[in-house]
């Protein structure tokens, strides 16, 4: 497949996000209680939905990676965990900037916020572990297993506002949001999804190319290394 095709969802997504954000910042009416600060919802909620979904995508890739032992699934796991980490980190910072003017604090250890923070750390942990393992066979298994374990927290984070008393409000749904707010929110979500898909695709292509280069150097292995070693000795 031509790697350049991934630019299609990425560019479409960036354009759609610009439109959605224009809608949220300029066209949407002021929220009745929060005032202008309520506009943060149009950036925050799509980030949350997309971040969680990228966690799910990473989980599917991880299962495929362990089941098939193919490098493509492993690279997909790496790319989607990376994008999920990025989005969930962004999510926490957006949330803090929304929390200060509404709740009165940047952060509090309520179940939703705590589980999201754990999610960021565990996804980041997968990437760190992965970077420490150089043997691709082991790396694939370490990445797959840790991604599946880290994913457990995604549904917990999602349902935390239903299960426990939280400072964070209950999850937003179509019925809890006034009609004139909706289009911008849904377009923002679609845009973030397209961007995330494009970025995962492009990143995977880059990582795959790198893996092939590394394999080209080390996997032809022994014979080539021996020749080089002999050449070195001979030279010295």
């Amino acid at each position: 497949m031509n790697d350049k095709l991934w630019f299609v969802p990425l560019v479409l997504g960036l354009v759609a996000l610009a439109v959605a954000h224009y809608g949220g910042l300029v066209m949407a009416p002021t929220e009745a209680m929060m005032g202008e600060v309520g506009r943060i919802m149009y950036a925050h909620v799509p980030t949350a939905w997309t971040g969680m979904l990228m966690g799910l995508v990473a989980f599917v890739f991880a299962c495929g990676s362990l089941a098939t032992s193919k490098d493509g699934w492993d690279i997909g796991t790496h790319a989607s965990v990376e994008v999920a980490t990025l989005l969930c980190t962004l999510l926490c910072i957006q949330g803090a900037l929304w929390a200060k003017p509404t709740w009165g604090v940047y952060w509090d250890w309520d179940p939703r916020l705590t589980s999201t923070a754990i999610l960021v750390l565990s996804f980041a942990g997968v990437l760190i572990l992965r970077a420490l393992v150089h043997d691709q066979g082991k790396r694939r298994i370490v990445t797959g297993v840790t991604t599946i374990l880290a994913f457990v927290n995604v549904p917990i984070t999602y349902y935390s506002v239903k299960w426990w008393n939280t400072l964070h409000q209950d999850m937003s749904s179509g019925s809890s949001i006034a009609d004139e707010f909706k289009w911008s929110l849904y377009l923002g979500w679609l845009a973030m999804m397209l961007i995330a898909v494009g970025l995962v695709g492009l990143r995977s292509a880059g990582l795959m190319a790198r893996l092939r280069r590394e394999h080209g150097e080390t996997a032809l292995p022994k014979a080539k290394q021996k020749i080089e070693l002999l050449a070195e000795k001979g030279g010295a």
Binding site: P29, T30, G35, E36
Partner: peptide
Amino acid sequence: DRLLVKHSNEYKAATEDMTAEERKALY
């Protein structure tokens, strides 16, 4: 010694018949 406000998940538009003053009072 610490007071936090818990917002609901209801997002409603400020109503049309609000005066500029009332809109300002929202924030």
